[in-house]
Design a protein around this nucleic acid. Sequence first.
RNA 1: GCCCGAGUGGCGGAACUGGUAUACGCGCACGACUUAAAAUCGUGUCUCGCAAGGGAUGUGGGUUCGAUUCCCACCUCGGGCACCA
Length: 989
Amino acid sequence: MKNYNHKKIELKWQKEWEKKKTYQARDKSKNKKFYSLIEFPYPSGDGLHVGHIRSNTAMDIISRKRRMEGYNVLYPIGWDAFGLPTENYAIKTGKQPKVITKKNSDTFRRQLKEIGFSFDWSREVNTTDPEYYKWTQWIFLQFFKKGLAYKAEIPINWCPRCKIGLANEEVIDGKCERCGEQTERRLKKQWMLGITKYAERLDKDLDLVDYPERVKLSQRNWIGKSEGSEIEFFIKASKHVGPAVSVKVFTTRADTLFGVTYVVLAPEHPLVSKLLEKTQNKNEVLKYIEEARKKSELERTAENKEKTGVELKGIKAINPAYGGASPAGNEVHPAEGGEVSVWIADYVLAHYGTGAVMAVPAHDERDFEFAQKYNLPIKNVIVPFVNLDSGEFGFRPELPTVKRECIHAIVKHWEKDEYLCLSSIKHGWKTFVIGGIENDEDPIEAARREIIEETGFTDFKLIKPLGDVIFARHFAPHKNENRFASLLGFYFELQSDKSISIADHESSNQEILWVKREDIPDTLKPKITDWVFWQRLFPGESACFEDDGILINSGKFNQLSSQDARNEITKFVDGKIVTKFKLRDWVFSRQRYWGEPIPIVECEKCGTVSLPEKELPLKLPEVKNYKLTETGESPLANIPKWVNTKCPKCKGPAKRETDTMPNWAGSSWYYLRYCDPKNKKVFAEKKKLKYWTPVDWYNGGMEHTTLHLLYSRFWHKFLYDLKLVPTVEPYKKRTSHGMILGEGGVKMSKSLGNVINPDNIVRTYGADTLRVYEMFLGPFEDSVAWSTESIIGPRRFIEKVWRIGNKISESQKDFSGPRFSSRKALGQTIQNPSGSLSFKKLLHKTIKKVGEDIETMRFNTAVSAMMILTTEMEKSENIDPKDFKKFLQILAPFAPHISEEIWNLLGEKKSINLSKWPKWDEKLIKDEEIKIVVQINGKVRDEILIKVNEDEEDIKKKAIESQAIRRFIQNREIKRIIYVKNRLINVVV
RNA sequence: GCCCGAGUGGCGGAACUGGUAUACGCGCACGACUUAAAAUCGUGUCUCGCAAGGGAUGUGGGUUCGAUUCCCACCUCGGGCACCA
C-alpha cells in the first residue's frame, strides 16, 4: 500500500482541475443554475484566516454537492481590496497601495488554491481594478442623477487619529471602529446616499427572502420603523405680536395627549432661533445651546443618567387636545387648561421624528425623569387594563358582558407584617377582599362594608386609597358571565382583632389566610388585578406606567383603549398618522486615498457637476505621499494637477472632488459583476443577470447584517428601479457562520500571538484534513475555539479512508486475476448476508444523513456519520467497491483531493466532482426489526426486539413478560402501559 | 436598560416534531503488535455504590406516564442596540 502523501495528491489534483476547468461556470447552459456566494475577502497583509476557510469550505461543500446534482454552479471569488489597513501600511512603508494589494491578493489566491476550493477563478474580480471601479463610479452617477447622492453639511463622526469621517455604523461605543480613538462631532460637507428613501421597502421586502430570523430582526431594528402621529402645538408668547407659530411633534402615544405637561425641542430645532427673541431668558438658552453643540454624541449619551434642559420662559405651547388652539387670523386663542411650558433639552434628538416631543411624564420614563428634576407637573391619563383572554378566567366572546364597579381592599394584620387573603374553597382563588359597589354607594364605604361582611373584622382604619381606577375584563365562572369592571383599591390596617361573626354563606365559601408580605406574589391566584394594587402599595423600580391601557382624565376619550384612542385623538386634533425610521442617510465620503474617487467636479459657474459616463473610470492618480493633509482632506487634495480640471459642462476651471467612497461601495454590487466580469460596455449584461441572479445562497458573518447586507440590498433595489437588474432582492437565502476563536475561546489576534497560519496546517496535515477538521469543529453557526491538538482526529479519519481505499483497490486488482472476480466478491456478500446487509443499511443511512446535513449546514454531524461508517468499513472484510465509491462521493465535497485520488485508483476516469450524487435506497433504510426500550415509570429497565409496526398488544405483552421487567412489577399493580410507536414502552405501576 | 443567542463529561460537542442523555472526536488509562519507540488496532473512560440501585443536561419551581427539549422565575456568559418619543 502506498503511503498517504497529501502534498503530492493535493497538488496533482489542483493542477488537473485547473487544466480541465472542472469548476468553471458556463454562461450558456440548459441546466438549472445555482449561484453560491461567500463574502469576498479583504486581502490583508496577514494572509488568509482560518475563519475564511470555515465559511469558504461550507459553501464549497454546498457548491460541490450541487454540481454533482447536475446544477450549473457559479461559485466565484474576488477581492474587496480598497480600505484603510492597506493605506496605513502604505503610509508607513511608502509602498504603493496598488503594489501592496497585488502582493496580498497573490498570497490569498495561492492559499485559497492550496485548500482546493472549487472557485471559478476565471471570474475573479478586484474592487481596486479601474475596470471594476469604473462601474462602481457609474452606479454612483446614477444615484446622483436621481438625486439620491447629494452633498450635505452635517455633523459627522470624526476620528481625530484617522482624520476621517465615519458612518454611524463605524462608530462603536463612541469610538472609531478601526483605531479605537474617541470620535467627535464636526460639521463637514459630505456626500450622502439617500438610503432612507428605501427604508420602507428594505423593511417590508425582508418578508420575501430566506434569511435567519435574527438577521431579519436586527435589520428591522436597525431600520427602526415606527408608526405614530404628528401633532401640531401652537405657540403662544407673552410678548407675542405677529403670525402664529407652531411646532409639530412626533409621538407613538397619541393616546397620552391629555397627559402632556410640557413640550421639548431639540437644541438644534429650527424653531428655537425664532423663539429666542421672545424668550425672557435668552442668554441662558443661548448658553445651553452652545454647550450642547460642543458635546459629542458620546458625551450626550454618556450623560444618559442625568438629563439637562432649559425652559423657554415666556413661551407656552397649547395642547390641541383641549381645543381652542387653532389660530384665528394671526392670533392664537388661549386655551383652557391646555397651556404648557416649552423646554429645550438635548435628550431630544434633532434628527429623529420632528426634533420635538410632547412630554408625558406619567407614561414615559425619560419625561418622568426630566419632570422630576425640574419639578414639572405629572398627569395620569392611562390606567392598567387587565384583559384576560385565555385560560380559566379568559374572556368568552359568546357570553354576555356585565359592567361592574368594584373595590379591592388590602388589609394588614394588627401587629404582624401579614396581609389578609381570602381563599375560595370552591374555586381555589386566593385574593384580597373584593366586592361590588352598590348603587350610589361611596367606594370607601363599600370597602368597609365588604371587609366586615367577608371577614368579620370591625376595628380598622383606612390608610390610603391605592391610586386611580383600573379596569379589568375577564370571565367570572361562578356567574357564567363576562365582566368589564372598574376597580378601586384601598389599603386598611386592622387596629385589633375585634370581630363579629360572619354570615354562614360567607364562612362556608371561603377562609381567611394571613400571608407574609414576601409570600404575597406566590399566593395570589389569579395574580391579576390584586397584583396591580399590591404593586401600588409596594412599588418596585418603575414609577411610571408605560404600557397601553385605558384612558382617564381625557375628556370624551375616557374609557377608550390606548389602541383606539391613538387614532381617535389624532383625528380629533387634526394630526397625521405617519411612519418614521431610525435609519439615517448613508455618509458616503471618506477623506482617504485608497478608495474609489467620486466622479464629480465643483465648477465655479455650474456648481456640482458629474463627469460624463464616457470619462469613467476616473482613475486614482499615483501619489508620493499617502499622508492626510493637515485639514483632514484626502491626500488627493495635495495633487493640484489632478484636482484642477475643466468643467465638463462649461469647460471653465473646476476642481475635482477629493473625497473617495467608503469601502462598502465596491462590495455593494460585486455579486452582479461576477455574472459578467469582463464586460466593457455595461456592469453586467442583462441576459447573464437574468440567468444567474438572484444569488441562491449567500453565506457571511453576522457583523455584516446591518452594514454590507443592508447597503447591498439598497443598491440592488435602486438598480432594480432603473430596470438594470431583474430581481427585487439580491440574495434569495442568507446564512451566517460563527467565528473561529483562538485556543481557549479568546479572540485570535496578533497581539495575543494566537493566530493560526493555515499554511502550516496545510503543510503538516493537508488541505483535506483541514477542511474536514473545520467542518467537524462544532455547529457552523456558533463560535468555536480552535484546537490544534484535535486536528489529529480528522487526520486519522482521512488516513483510514486511504487505507480502506487502497485495500479495495488492491483486491480489485486481484479480482481480475483467475482466483477472484468481482462476481465472487458479490457472491460472498450473499453468503454472508447479515453482516453485509447491515453495512449496506448503514451506508444508505449515511448517504441520507450527509445529504440532509449539508442542506441544513450541520456539517459536524455529517462528518461524524462518515466517521462511523468508516470505522465500520475498516472492520468489514468484503466491501463491494461500488458501495465504497458511493461513500467516496459523499465524502468528496468535504475532502475533494483524497476522494478524487481513490476514485481514480479504483479505475474511474471522470472526475468524482462531476459524478452523480448517490441516491439512498428507501428500502435499505427501513429496519424490519428494531430494539425498543421498556421503561418502568419512565426509567429504562430493559430492551426488547420487535418487528417494525408490530401489533401494539403483542408488544405490550412481550414487554411485561421480559425477565427484568417482571422483577420490577412483582406485586405491583400496572396502572397504564404507554406505547410510543417503534420507540418505547412505558409501564406505569 | 432593551432585544437576540447560549449554558450538557477533563475538553470540542451529539440527541429528529417531548421518548434509551453523553453519538463522533480529542485527551487520559490499560492491552495487542514491536528489541524499542512512533504509527496503528482493541478495551475502558459522567458520578456515588461491592452490588442491587441512586444522582446528574446553569439554579429553583411547574406541566407530563416521561423534560436537555415545553412553561414560569432567577443566575452566568456571548452578541447586538442604546435617550429613536
